[in-house]
Design a binder for these strands. Sequence first.
DNA 1: TTGCATTTCAAACGCGTGTATGAAACTATC
DNA 2: GATAGTTTCATACACGCGTTTGAAATGCAA
Lengths: 230, 230
Amino acid sequence: MASDHTRSAILAAAERLYADRGFGDVTLRDIVAEANVNLAAVNYHFGSKDELIAELFVTRSLATNRERLNELKAAEEAGGGRASIEAIMHALVGPTLRGCLGPDREGSTAARFMIRASIESVPPIRRIKNREVDHLRKFVAAMRRSLPGRDDAELYWGLHFALAMSHHTIREKERLTKLSEGQCDLNDVNAIVERVVTVSVMALTGGEPAKKAPARSMAPPYGRLTRQDL
Amino acid sequence: MASDHTRSAILAAAERLYADRGFGDVTLRDIVAEANVNLAAVNYHFGSKDELIAELFVTRSLATNRERLNELKAAEEAGGGRASIEAIMHALVGPTLRGCLGPDREGSTAARFMIRASIESVPPIRRIKNREVDHLRKFVAAMRRSLPGRDDAELYWGLHFALAMSHHTIREKERLTKLSEGQCDLNDVNAIVERVVTVSVMALTGGEPAKKAPARSMAPPYGRLTRQDL
DNA sequence: TTGCATTTCAAACGCGTGTATGAAACTATC
DNA sequence: GATAGTTTCATACACGCGTTTGAAATGCAA
């Protein structure tokens, strides 16, 4: 057991370097140099480079998931077991967006690391992401409670688009700034969250203010929908 | 000059392998084995591995961009210089979605390659993508003509979200299928295009059927907007 | 056929990587 | 303070990679 000093120094240095320069060109030697520890320490404490990356990513995404679920649970309790669809989407995209776009929170290293993880998609991280389905299903369940009668496929598409907008905003933050020549304010995180939530809710409810709308409303003007369940 | 046989065999083999297995674990040796040419041929004909990848990507994305602009031009001419916002978004996301999700088009190798390029984000490709700004600006210009008086930032956000949804759908195709347990039909490309267009238009017009709406309508319920231009 | 330029080829180079080794330095328990 | 277990360290290994080399083969004009 002992001090753990080396172990956490490696974790901190690795996260910092990965956040700054991406997974592609950060070697174990870079990491141990930054952490002032011996090269062999990585394999001693983590087993392999991939396991080090996995541990970093698991830690951070567990934290985000916990935050999301807390927000969801709070919203459902406040609504007597049924949260508004706005609140649900807010809980879904808020923590991630705040974490990755927000101002320095613990030096924002964690945030920048998660951005990299979302951009570069290295094998150990991809493996973990594929097990995130269960977590998302909890949101689908909440959405089902909030919008009863709505087709399940519609719920999945709404969730999918919400994640699309928030992840893409994180990934392409720089590009959007450049494209819009600074006209899109990427610093006001709350405004961005509201923007994403608003569009997501519109996608799910078809533009109406989202008060228990009758049923499927996002049906495209033409072109068939899913035909699974006729 | 000569036969070009070797050159094109390399291009074809590389695209096929990258499409199937990703950039991460395809080596030059894999490629030349698949193409039945000598290892040194790659450097002789392309200069380096990165330039080979770049040539592949440039070729394919030029084709997509051309397709997009053709669709846009056709829509603008049909509307007397002003296309409907639906048509513009359609031209923006249609070609990419059809190319990457559609059924076999020339063996769909090109499509799968572009999916990889959008997922893995390898340096030479990233460099090229960063020069795509000019191309997107043409769409912003068309949007400005279609929705005059609308805040520029709103147009950028709308374009951004449209790209978000189409790219994310391509990237996470498998995950969405798994999450929804097949309830989201990822095979009906036209329906997906309509879905993305519909939501994009709602994001831009605020849910109204998009007939030259007065002005900014996607303003979030609370939270400030951009403050650049006061 | 000769001569020159282009293209192919087998082989090797050089480098950087993640990982393994085995001894040395600690730390804690008795 | 001896001993067993844990952690650090310098060093080396083995391998795969993109790239280079220089000679052989090929194509083509005169």
